[in-house]
Design a protein around this nucleic acid. Structure first.
Lengths: 211, 211
DNA sequence: TAGATTGTTAATCGATTAACAATC
DNA sequence: TAGATTGTTAATCGATTAACAATC
């Protein structure tokens, strides 16, 4: 139960990371952890961890710490990972195909229903079980099916058009892998993965290190 | 010519974005831009843009603005994009193959020399011209060849081992796509792309929107 | 010269860290 | 009860924004 103040982006970015470590702890059979121990594990300060978690509620117990499994469930719920998301991916090239698979099989609850493509050689095929449809069918498909998230993996120059069609078609989230910062209407969530930007930052830090 | 104060991560994250927009402006034949106009384009405040750029030098001209092409070159140089980087990718699965291609062909100067894999069916093949080698050869390869950046695209449980081999082999940067936060020795730059974390943040914002 | 816009300092805002009272 | 550790307030730090003098 979130308090009604807006949570900062910085906090939200840390939650999936906390969750990953909690999952590992569960796998290792650890059932309680203090903010201090969790700090050593994650690299965030104990103070920040407590501060972050208390945005959402008091999940710990004084003198004891946090129950690993309970905290994992709480964070999962906060992130909305206790539901299912239907997704479509647009742009079934090399990277698109790989991402469709990755997303579908590595993340519980995120279901990639199909891939939309313009290349006639791919249309009609199945890629690891995920059907490839004609991009022309996208708008109709969205009319007939409820889709939560659209993944954009096209070229830069069609990205905005694709995003518009997805948003008009009723998706509530866009996961964008193109180099374009697409704009989405209010009420649609947007997450960009700019791979080249990431690589370019890496280049910077390499140079900085060697000075 | 960077001043000798450490530049904050927030600034470095914005530079590739500035550069992308400058590239677009160049393609559109625009040759000067003011911080105010650039603000409208990028969504960052004019003040922040000027502040950021002045960490590295005075690239503008009072009363005029910034020369688009010159600024693009400056930022490229700051990011270290005026050199070549030799890369190897470890883990040539679905996503690894796609990333090797993407990196090799979408980014000038980032050359993926080869892919290392354990799957015997892939070893010896070429994927879009990039040779797949036996993972067993990685250590020797790094002894004989100078490699700048290692891309890790294996499963989570071998990620740290791979990272260690790459770092001992002399790479100066790690681009990590696994869900593990690998640790690298001081002097090696690390950039993580946690795809699942990104997706999980998206899920959060979708929920937040619909409340 | 007048107008525009930078470079840079100062003010504000927000996020992180420290401290400690509450409490298990 | 004593010890440990949270939840939360206060202090600090850093990043963003505003303001304006410098200057093209």
């Amino acid at each position: 139960m979130p308090k009604n103040t807006q949570i900062s982006k910085a906090v939200i970015k840390r939650l999936p990371r906390y969750r990953r470590y909690l999952k590992e702890l569960m796998a290792d059979g650890v059932d309680k952890i203090s903010s201090k121990e969790f700090s050593q594990l994650t690299g965030y300060t104990a103070s920040q961890i407590r501060q972050d978690l208390n945005n959402f509620g008091g999940f710990g117990q004084q003198g004891y710490g946090y129950n690993v499994e309970a905290l994992f469930e709480e964070i999962s719920s906060i992130l909305g990972l206790d539901r299912e998301y239907k997704m479509v991916l647009v742009g079934g090239g090399n990277l698109g195909q790989a991402l469709a698979n990755y997303t579908h099989y590595s993340n519980m609850g995120f279901i990639v229903e199909c891939i939309f493509e313009v290349n006639p050689r791919l249309i009609g095929m199945r890629i690891n079980g995920i059907k490839v449809r004609d991009y022309e069918e996208l708008v109709d498909y969205l009319k007939e099916n409820s889709v939560d998230i659209g993944i954009i993996c096209t070229t830069k120059n069609t990205a905005q058009e694709v995003s518009d069609k997805l948003c008009e078609g009723g998706v509530r989230g866009i996961w964008n892998f193109t180099a374009l910062d697409v704009s989405v209407p209010k009420g649609v969530a947007l997450e960009n993965v700019h791979l080249s930007d990431s690589l370019h930052s890496l280049a910077y830090y390499m140079m900085e290190n060697s000075q």
